[in-house]
Amino acid sequence: MPEPVITVRNLKKHFSVYKKEPGLLGSVRSLLRREYETVAAVDDISFSIKQGEVVGFIGQNGAGKTTTLKMLAGLLYPTSGEVSVLGFNPWNRENAFQKQFSLVLGQKNQLWWDLPAMETFLLNQAIYDIPNPRFRKTLNKLVDLLDVKDSIQIQVRKLSLGQRMKCELIAALLHNPKVLFLDEPTIGLDVIMQKTLRDFISEYNKEYNATIILTSHYMDDVKELCERVIMIDHGKKIYDGLLSSIINKYARNKILSVVFAAPVSKNDLKKFGTIKHLTGSSATLLVSRKDATKIAARLLESLPVQDLNIEEAPLEAIIREVFGNRAKIA
């Protein structure tokens, strides 16, 4: 069995934040006496990840996903616990470690704003000590894959968000990192661009057998890229396992999309399940997951069905269900 590339044991990160009352009086008072509160951003998390795995970090805003990634990257000092990435303690920020990973923060950029992205690429070549032939080869490949040949000579501030994000990814991957931390890499992008980046990340994982941790609020990212997910809520790990298992376990319903040969009434349909949508001859029904096949068969017998599809409930709804049942899981 391969050794884990990332090992996290009892990791904690607590922030001390002070509470200030509103207004001028509150400001004056806070100068004299401050009330501090300890916030557990990450609270006793443990997991390990093997080489080549793509793991999705799922959680609501403020759950502790980005804080965990920042600790794995060596940006934040943990309150307690142990972290090992590629055999290094990230906090030591050793060059040998930093040459082997990348952290991409969707809402932050490393590209020089007023210069073309190519300047940042050249700077990274120098910083990461990439030999020229390897640099050219990787750059050409990444530029082709992401289709940004015309953008890399243009000032970054004049690029669209999508083009910028692609250039960010290139800057992060020029040194062929073995470990990739992606924090909301598709945030703010349109659906086509999201798909392009997802395909690219998947391609990168396969080609370099790279280990990837991905956080995203777009469940399509997680569904397409991650076999395994780690769910975090209020700094605590509430699930770690296959995405398919969580779907099987927590998706209570399936969706039946039906097209009828002739219009059907609401009364005819409601005995089969919860009607989510009905317009003339098409309908969407929410049915119990375990009875979905039987209900579909009954529908086919009873009504003039022209076309019928059984689909999984959207991942977003399942995740909501999981977070709703947090106490049961924990």
Binding site: G74, L75, Q98, K99, S102, L105, K108, Y128, D129
Partner: peptide, 8 residues
Amino acid sequence: SSLLLKPV
């Protein structure tokens, strides 16, 4: 942060 992540 982006500087702290680099081997420099």
